[in-house]
């Protein structure tokens, strides 16, 4: 078959421009004025494209940029806490219920859901909700480790959607099915 019988695809013509095309495609472009013109036009387009630098901001700008990103993240975390605050309160309440003497519930084992691990549970005495959250996690070591949050709300603000659902499910069972209200 003659090389110039069928025009190569644009993808192959780009390979010709990049110098990585197979011999048949190269021979076609060498013999076909139409394809040669298209490759040349793309070559000129590439040359023009390289003349379009983006203006470089001042070095001081990047420090401010990071501060702005950090500020927006903090704002978002705060607004999430506002949403989660009632959940935190409910967690404390559920914990109180769970830890009260069980009496009539003694014969039926309490089911404790296993929650996914979250990163941070500080052992702070002034936030009883933290202990509750830890207990809700199945009293496993994975929740007893470390710690970046300063209180129940802070911990809850770091939960993933899946973890929030797990906490909500557990609370629903505790509050809905419990006998101490």
């Amino acid at each position: 078959m003659r090389d110039e019988a069928v025009h190569p695809t644009e993808a192959v013509l780009l390979d010709v421009l990049d110098g990585v095309a197979e011999g048949q495609a190269r021979r076609h472009v060498a013999a076909c004025a139409e394809c040669a013109a298209r490759v040349e036009e793309a070559r000129q387009g590439l040359g023009l494209a390289s003349q379009a630098d983006v203006p470089e901001p001042s070095p001081l700008y990047w420090e401010d940029f990071r501060s702005q990103v950090g500020r927006r993240i903090r704002v978002e975390r705060r607004s999430r806490r506002v949403v989660l605050a009632p959940l935190a309160a409910a967690a404390v309440l559920a914990g109180v219920i769970a830890f009260l003497p069980r009496g009539d519930r003694a014969s039926s084992p309490v089911r404790v859901a296993t929650l996914p691990a979250w990163s941070a549970l500080p052992a702070e005495d002034d936030d009883p909700g933290l202990g509750v959250l830890s207990a809700m996690g199945g009293r496993t070591e994975e929740l007893a480790t470390t710690v970046d949050c300063r209180g129940t709300e802070d911990c809850l603000a770091d939960l993933s959607e899946e973890e929030i659902r797990a906490v909500a499910d557990l609370l629903g069972r505790e509050l809905g099915g419990g006998s101490r209200r």
């Binding site: 695809t9 644009e10 993808a11 013509l13 780009l14 390979d15 421009l17 298209r38 036009e41 793309a42 070559r43 000129q44 387009g45 590439l46 023009l48 494209a49």
Partner: peptide
């Protein structure tokens, strides 16, 4: 696909040349 990306790039370079 990679082939589509190459074709898009080839068209884009030709279009840039024409537009400029």
């Amino acid at each position: 696909s990679v082939g589509t990306v190459k074709a898009n790039l080839f068209h884009a370079l030709g279009n840039l040349r024409k537009r400029l």
